[in-house]
Design a binder for these strands. Structure first.
Length: 420
RNA sequence: GGGGAGGUGGCUGAGUGGUCGAAAGCACCCGCCUGCUAAGCGGGUAGGGGGUGUAAAGCUCCCUCGCAAGUUCAAAUCUUGUCCUCCCCGCCA
């Protein structure tokens, strides 16, 4: 969330940013409630101060008249305080609904169409024959099964079978190895069920609860991304400056209800209720964050390059970047069978927006007051869609698929999927 | 699931109604002392919020001893609920 202080001082700036993001922001209500809150608080505190003073006097004198007066003061202070707290709760709830500002380098725009190609690597593969889709290939090879997944779980689920399952495991291992051994991340195995406080910390709540699955009757949510447990790892902590930047990576399943995506990407291994992802999360100081954000994006790109997959780095425009993000890149990999780019990674920097929600701070120097950290995350990469890009890019005329060089050691030396 | 113990500052840990935001120790910081280091001596060091201040500083008040509610003029301390941790028994991958 944004500091209340900023909203008090420069409400117009916050309104403008929200407008360019296409997000509603209840700034005027916040300012009203803020004034109301401070009024009640001030009154309660004035009474309380007097009460504390007289209470000490009473301890000495035991004057029964004073006791009556104190009782009456306590009631008044309690009433004002209760009122102040009620208003503050409303205020806090509204604060959680104010979108983040954005970095000056973010292009202004309204929709996906206004995103900008920032960088490109490789080029569209020349197959020399008509490209098939990953689901066409996958089903023919017997490594993907959507129909039986529909029976067992429902629509938007999939089985990976045999060499398909092995391919995902190989990819996960490969990505984790590169990130831990070469990019300096610490591997984490995280809970995939988290509580509401964690969901609020990363800004998945209160606004986006409909996108996630909740466990009935319990304060537990299936994670939509391991960003949630990783970012919340240090919730309510004060870190030392020399611990920063903290860099974590985790391989987890992710669960999304895909509410509002009805009819979109219903075919194929693209938009599922459950998919796997290797995630990267960084916790940094304010000074480091933009640089670490670029590096994290490069770490994700490194995986795509080693896999030999053509991709574009898109800078998301204000209208498409999301509620919480300060700046966001999407990495889109080319899928010749689909004839379009698929988003295989999304890398974001949040400034202190998540840190304020999650109360994550660090001490810049010994004895110095704590400051909020900055948080960054990105997929490195989403496994399902990376599999799509691999199948479609490395397919051969006979419907088999070559295994990218770097994955072969992870697949027991297998060079071609589907060859018999 | 049943029984028991406990949650206090960066850490260890004392504190069972006011003199406690909190002893003591550790760690850390500043100073003194000493060829250097160690030891010793003195001082300092929780977080949040309101008001004041151009701001930094400062001043001042309020809140916080897992969380929530209650009793009381007054709660770390008493009551209830809740969450979490640990131990024993049962069950279980």
């Amino acid at each position: 969330m944004l500091p209340l202080e900023l909203i008090r001082k420069d409400p117009e700036r916050v309104k403008r940013a929200a407008q360019l993001k296409g997000e509603p922001a209840p700034i005027d209500e916040i300012l009203q409630l803020d004034e109301k809150w401070r009024g009640h608080l001030h009154r309660a505190e004035t009474i309380k101060a007097e009460q504390n003073r007289l209470s000490k006097e009473f301890a000495q004198t035991r004057d029964p008249q004073l006791k009556d007066r104190l009782r009456e003061m306590a009631d008044r202070a309690k009433a004002d305080l209760a009122e102040a707290e009620a208003v503050k709760r409303q205020l806090d709830d509204l604060l959680l609904r104010v979108p983040n500002l954005f970095h000056e380098s973010v292009p202004v725009g309204e929709s996906e169409a206004d995103n900008v190609v920032f960088r490109e690597w490789g080029s569209r593969v020349e197959l020399g024959f008509e490209a098939r889709t990953h689901f066409d290939l996958g089903e023919a090879l017997g490594i993907m099964d959507f129909e039986r997944a529909g029976k067992v779980a429902g629509s938007r689920f999939a089985f990976l079978i045999g060499e398909g399952a092995r391919l995902e495991r190989a990819l996960a291992q490969f990505m984790l190895d590169v990130h831990t051994r070469e990019h300096g991340y610490i591997e984490v195995l995280a809970p995939v069920l988290v509580n509401s406080a964690s969901m609020t910390g990363t800004a998945n709540l209160p606004k986006f609860g409909d996108d996630a699955f909740k466990v009935e009757g319990q304060d537990l949510w299936l994670i939509p991304t391991s960003e949630v447990p990783l970012t919340n790892l240090h919730r309510d902590e004060i870190l030392d400056a020399d611990q920063l930047p903290l860099k974590y990576t985790a391989y987890t399943p992710c669960f999304r209800s895909e509410a509002g995506a009805a009819g979109k990407d219903t075919r194929g291994f693209i938009r599922l209720h459950q998919f796997s992802k290797v995630e990267m999360v960084k916790v940094t100081s304010a000074e480091q964050s933009m640089e670490e954000f670029e590096r994290l994006t490069a770490d994700a790109e490194d995986i795509l390059q080693r896999l030999g997959l053509h991709y574009q780095v898109m800078v998301m425009c204000t209208g498409d970047m999301g509620f919480a993000q300060y700046k966001k890149y999407d990495l889109n990999a080319w899928c010749p069978g689909l004839g379009r780019y698929l988003e295989v990674s999304s890398c974001s920097v949040f400034n202190d927006f998540q840190a304020m929600r999650a109360n994550m701070r660090y001490r810049p120097a010994r004895g110095a007051p704590p400051r909020f950290v900055h948080t960054i995350n990105g997929s490195g990469l989403a496994l399902t869609r990376t599999i799509d890009a691999i199948l479609e890019t490395y397919q051969r005329r006979d419907g088999t698929v070559a295994v990218p060089e770097v994955l072969r050691p992870y697949m027991g030396g297998l060079e071609v999927i589907g060859e018999r």
